Simulated assay, not measured.
Amino acid sequence: MNVIPAIDLLDGRCVRLYQGDYARSQVYSENPVEVAKQWVDQGASRLHLVDLDGAKAGHPVNTKTIEAIVQAVSVPVEVGGGLRDKEGVSQLLSVGVQYAILGTAAVEDHPLVEHLCSEFPDRIIVGIDARNGQVATRGWLETSEITATQLAQQMANLGVSAIIYTDIHRDGTLTGPNRDALRELASHVSIPVIASGGVSSITDLLSLLALEPLGVIGAIVGRALYTGDVSLKEAIQAVGQGRLQDIPPDLGSSSLA
């Protein structure tokens, strides 16, 4: 089980949202680069970045900050938020981002997803963010008619490498991951699934180990790291990274795209 710290960017700062509500954001640092270096120093083998401004704008916004983070750390960085065309994906990959996470595009533009998977093999994953089982898009500001499981199956057929599943009602709440929803989604696809949203303790992370046989092979941790409820070093030690060699290189956490 891979533990992946999340860094959410809003106006160039490191923040956390409560249930995806932009009006309920809390600033944790004015210097996201230092935050990124801190997580790597504590053992993170991958960083998950979300461009919250980009998610609303529909194109990357915090590119300079993202590039600075990429240059400052020695681990792969993945980014979601506003990646809805080839230009946006290419822009981030060109500044050193290893993996691009698609969200809204996965719902609205299947030909684009298929093309990007072909153009950038093993560098495209899809973030599925759900509210009451229905997929949310455009920075969680809109809710589609498709269910998370249906979209996951469609994306698997298009050739994406993995699914990052975020339960919006759990995100930023420290109420624990939605294991039932994760079990439902993972049981319907053959590609790996990453859990995101609600992790409040190392116990929550350990509880996800039971879903590994279904393909849930990683977890994104955000607010709990910033509040101190979870120590990254202790979490990595507790869940272990024994299967890391079996995890495709394009995996990571919560995306607002």
Results as ranks from 00 to 15, higher is better:
1 M>S: 13
7 I>F: 03
9 L>K: 07
9 L>T: 04
11 D>G: 13
15 V>M: 10
19 Q>G: 02
20 G>Y: 08
21 D>L: 14
21 D>P: 01
25 S>D: 02
32 P>I: 06
32 P>K: 09
34 E>W: 09
37 K>Y: 02
37 K>L: 03
39 W>I: 04
41 D>N: 15
42 Q>Y: 08
45 S>D: 05
46 R>K: 15
48 H>N: 13
50 V>W: 02
50 V>L: 03
51 D>C: 02
52 L>Y: 07
53 D>Q: 01
54 G>I: 00
55 A>N: 03
57 A>G: 01
59 H>Q: 15
59 H>T: 15
59 H>G: 03
59 H>V: 10
61 V>S: 01
64 K>V: 14
65 T>H: 02
65 T>I: 15
65 T>P: 01
66 I>H: 06
69 I>C: 00
75 V>N: 04
79 V>R: 05
82 G>Q: 04
84 R>H: 05
87 E>V: 15
88 G>D: 07
88 G>L: 12
91 Q>C: 12
91 Q>M: 12
92 L>S: 11
93 L>W: 04
94 S>K: 13
97 V>M: 11
100 A>E: 01
100 A>S: 05
102 L>I: 06
103 G>R: 06
104 T>N: 04
104 T>F: 07
106 A>T: 13
110 H>T: 03
111 P>G: 14
117 C>R: 10
120 F>L: 09
122 D>E: 08
122 D>T: 09
125 I>P: 01
126 V>P: 02
126 V>F: 09
126 V>I: 13
127 G>F: 02
128 I>F: 10
129 D>A: 10
133 G>I: 00
134 Q>N: 11
135 V>F: 04
135 V>H: 00
136 A>I: 02
137 T>M: 00
138 R>V: 01
142 E>L: 04
144 S>A: 13
144 S>F: 03
145 E>A: 14
146 I>C: 00
149 T>H: 04
149 T>Y: 06
150 Q>A: 12
150 Q>R: 13
151 L>F: 08
153 Q>W: 05
154 Q>N: 08
155 M>C: 11
157 N>G: 11
159 G>R: 12
161 S>V: 13
162 A>S: 10
163 I>D: 00
165 Y>T: 01
166 T>C: 09
167 D>S: 14
168 I>D: 05
168 I>N: 06
180 D>C: 10
181 A>M: 12
182 L>Q: 05
187 S>E: 07
189 V>G: 00
191 I>F: 13
194 I>E: 00
195 A>H: 10
197 G>N: 01
199 V>D: 01
207 S>L: 06
214 L>T: 05
215 G>H: 04
217 I>L: 08
220 I>N: 13
226 Y>R: 14
229 D>H: 12
230 V>E: 02
232 L>W: 02
233 K>H: 07
233 K>I: 11
234 E>L: 06
238 A>E: 04
242 G>N: 13
242 G>I: 00
246 D>C: 11
247 I>D: 00
247 I>S: 08
249 P>F: 12
253 S>M: 01
254 S>I: 11
255 S>L: 05
256 L>T: 09
256 L>C: 14
